[in-house]
Design a binder for these strands. Structure first.
Lengths: 187, 187
DNA sequence: ACCTGAACACCGTTCAAGT
DNA sequence: ACCTGAACACCGTTCAAGT
C-alpha cells in the first residue's frame, strides 16, 4: 500500500506531535516507528523544523477539507455549528491526543518560524469557517461574528486541553454542554 | 535577600516551565540561571520530576492564595467574577508566558505521576473558586454551577493558549469580551 | 551542608560512504 | 534514489570526591 516513506513519516510524526508536541517529537523514535534509521529522515526532510512545518501544513489542509465536508453534509446552520466540537473530540478519542496546533501553541517560544506560521493558519482556517457558520445561523450579528468565532475556537481548544489533562473524554462533553448552556454555542 | 538556593531554583523553574513546559525545562540552563552547576540541583531536588512536582504544588498554592485575596477584595459578586480572567492575563503580560498547568496539561502523556497530580489540583482549586463565585452572583443555578465553573475555566485557559500562540495580548481581551458577549461570563 | 567534574546513556544533526 | 554507521555537541542523571 503506502510504500511511500515520506507519507509514512508525515503520518507518524503527526500522531507523535499530537501526543508529545514539537519538543517531544523524537527523530530517533520516529525513525524506528517508520522502520528506518534516524539519519535517513534527513533525506526526506532537511531538518526537524522542516518536517514539523510540513506536518502542520498538512494538518490544517486536512482540517480545511474536513470542515468543507461538514459544511456540505449539514445543511442546517445550527446542526452544522453544533457538529464543530466533534472534530476536536476525535483527537481525544484517538488515544487522548490533542490538536497539534494547540500543543504547538503552548510551545510557541520554542517553535521555528516556519512552524509558527502553519500553526497560525490552522487557527485562521477554523475561525473563518466558524465565522461563516455563525453568520449562517442568523443568531449572531455580522459585526460580532469575528470575535464570536474566535471565542468559540479558543473555548473548544481549551475544553480539549482540560479534558486531556484528566484523560477524561466525558469531561469534554460536559464542557461543550456547558458552553451551550451558557450561550456560547447555540442550544 | 534570598540567599536560599532552593527558593531561587523553584522561582526560576516556574518561570521556565511557564514558557517551555516540563519537557523544555532544561536542568543545565536552569542551573546556569541560578548560578550553580547542573549536578548541584540534585542536592536540592532528587530528580527533575520532583522539582517539577514541587514547582506545580507551589503554583497552585500561590493561585489559591491569590484567589482568596480576590474574593475578599471584590465584595461585588459580578465584579469578582469578571476579575478572574485577569489572573491568566498576567502570565501573558509577563513575557507571553502561560499557565504552567495548561502547558503541562498538553504534556500530560510525558508527565511523571506526581506532577500530574499537582497539575490537576490547580484546576480543582480554580474550579472550586469559580463555582462559589458563580453561585454568589445568583445568576447560575447551584445544580449547573459545577459544569459552568469548569466551562469558564477551560474557556479562559483556551483564550490564554490562543493569545500566546499569536503573542497577542489584545486577542486575549477580545476573547474574554467574546465570552461576556456570548453569556459565558456575566456582562 | 552544599557544590563539583567526570562519566553514563540519551538526543538532533551531519556527512562521508554504501547500494 | 534511498539508506546507513560513525561522529558531533547536546541533554538528564549519577556518583565519587571536594570544601
Amino acid at each position: 500500500m503506502s510504500s511511500n516513506a515520506r507519507e509514512d513519516i508525515l503520518a507518524a510524526a503527526k500522531r507523535s506531535a499530537q501526543a508529545h508536541g514539537y519538543g517531544g517529537l523524537s527523530m530517533r523514535d520516529l525513525a524506528a516507528e517508520v522502520g528506518i534509521k534516524a539519519a535517513s529522515l534527513y533525506y526526506h526532510f532537511p531538518s526537524k523544523a522542516d518536517l514539523a512545518s510540513a506536518v502542520a501544513k498538512r494538518y490544517w489542509e486536512d482540517a480545511a477539507a474536513d470542515l468543507e465536508k461538514i459544511w456540505d453534509e449539514y445543511p442546517d446552520p445550527v446542526e452544522r455549528l453544533l457538529f464543530f466540537p466533534e472534530t476536536f473530540r476525535r483527537a481525544l478519542e484517538n488515544g487522548n491526543r490533542m490538536c497539534l496546533c494547540s500543543f504547538m501553541g503552548a510551545e510557541f517560544d520554542d517553535l521555528p518560524e516556519t512552524v509558527k506560521k502553519e500553526v497560525q493558519i490552522f487557527a485562521d482556517v477554523n475561525v473563518a469557517w466558524l465565522k461563516k457558520a455563525l453568520i449562517a445561523t442568523g443568531a449572531v450579528e455580522p459585526d460580532a461574528s469575528d470575535a464570536r468565532a474566535k471565542a468559540v475556537f479558543a473555548a473548544v481548544a481549551g475544553a480539549q486541553l482540560m479534558a486531556r489533562s484528566r484523560a477524561d473524554i466525558s469531561l469534554y462533553d460536559t464542557l461543550i454542554d456547558g458552553y451551550r448552556a451558557a450561550g456560547l454555542l447555540p442550544a
